[in-house]
C-alpha cells in the first residue's frame, strides 16, 4: 500500500519543530508500524536526508519504549497494544497517517518523535520500591502467604510497562494511571504495606513536581493503556493518599 506520512520533525530539545510530509510506497500490510518507519528511514538515508528518530527496543510489546501518537491516538487505533504490535493492516492504501511524539510538559521532546520520559523514573525513585535488608538474611518472598485475589491484583498493576500512553492520551497529561499502578502493586502486598503511607505521599508529590496534570476521570488512559491497567488503581491510590494525608506528620 502507498501512504502519506505527516511526521513531527524537531532537530533537538531547543529547536522549534514542525510537521513534515513523506510519501512511502509498497508497504506490506504484514509489517509492523515500526517496520514501516524503518522503510521510511532507509528511504531518507538513501536520499541523503536525516532519518526520523523514534524510540524502540524489544519490538514485542514488553519494554514500553515505543511511543508515538498516531492519527490522534496513543499507539494508534488498536486496543491494548504498543506501537510495535500495531500492524499496517490497520490502515488502507492511500491513507494519510499523522505521527506525533507524546505531548506533555513533563515529557519534553528530545528529537523528532523521541521524548524524555525520565519523569517516570523520578516518580519510581520517590517510593516505587520496597526497602529490604540484603545482608544475607532476606526472607524469600514466597514464604509470606498472600491471598490469591490480592496477588492477582498486584500482578495486574505490575504489568504496567511505563510507556507513558496514559499521559499522552489524557487530556490533562496526567500520570495518575502510571503512578497508581506502581502504588497499587506494592500497597496490595504485605511487603509493601510497611512503607505504604510514605510511598504514596512521596510518589504523588514527585508526580506533581514533574508537571503532570491532574486526573479528571475521563478514563482515556485505561482505554489506551497497552496493558489494560484499570482505573481501579487510581481509586486505590486516592484512598491510600487520603488515609496517608490524615496520619502523615
Amino acid at each position: 500500500m502507498d501512504l502519506t506520512l505527516k511526521i513531527w520533525r524537531q532537530k533537538n530539545a531547543q529547536a522549534k519543530g514542525k510537521m513534515e510530509t513523506y510519501p512511502v510506497k509498497d508497504i506490506s500490510e504484514d509489517m509492523s508500524f515500526l517496520e514501516m518507519l524503518d522503510v521510511l528511514n532507509e528511504q531518507l538515508i538513501n536520499d541523503g536526508k536525516e532519518p526520523v528518530a523514534f524510540d524502540h527496543d524489544c519490538r514485542e510489546g514488553i519494554c514500553g519504549m515505543c511511543s508515538l501518537y498516531i492519527n490522534g491516538q496513543a499507539h494508534g487505533p488498536d486496543r491494548e497494544i504498543t506501537t510495535c504490535q500495531l500492524h499496517m493492516r490497520s490502515f488502507k492504501n492511500g491513507d494519510t497517517i499523522v505521527i506525533e511524539p507524546w505531548r506533555a510538559a513533563a515529557f519534553p521532546v528530545i528529537k523528532d518523535l523521541v521524548t524524555d520520559r525520565s519523569a517516570f523514573d523520578r516518580i519510581m525513585n520517590a517510593g516505587g520500591f520496597v526497602s529490604v535488608n540484603t545482608s544475607g538474611n532476606t526472607i524469600d518472598a514466597n514464604s509470606i502467604p498472600i491471598p490469591k485475589h490480592d496477588a492477582d491484583k498486584a500482578f495486574d498493576a505490575a504489568t504496567c510497562i511505563g510507556c507513558g500512553a496514559c499521559v499522552a492520551s489524557c487530556k490533562n497529561a496526567s500520570a495518575m494511571l502510571f503512578t497508581s499502578a506502581k502504588v497499587s502493586q506494592l500497597a496490595l502486598l504485605p511487603q509493601g504495606k510497611v512503607e505504604a503511607h510514605e510511598r504514596v505521599m512521596n510518589m504523588v508529590h514527585q508526580m506533581d513536581e514533574e508537571g503532570f496534570g491532574n486526573c479528571t476521570n475521563t478514563g482515556a488512559c485505561e482505554v489506551e493503556c497497552p496493558k489494560g491497567i484499570s482505573l481501579e488503581n487510581i481509586a486505590r491510590m486516592n484512598r491510600e493518599y487520603l488515609s496517608a494525608s490524615l496520619v502523615s506528620e
Binding site: N71, K171, S174, G211, V223
Partner: peptide, 23 residues
C-alpha cells in the same frame, strides 16, 4: 493547571475514541 501540563497541543487529537464528550 491541566492546560499548562500540555503546552504543545497535538496536531491530531481523537478524544472521542477513548473518553466521553461530557468528561
Amino acid at each position: 493547571k491541566n492546560r499548562s501540563a500540555r503546552p504543545e497541543k497535538y496536531a491530531m487529537y481523537k478524544g472521542s475514541a477513548n473518553s466521553s464528550w461530557m468528561s
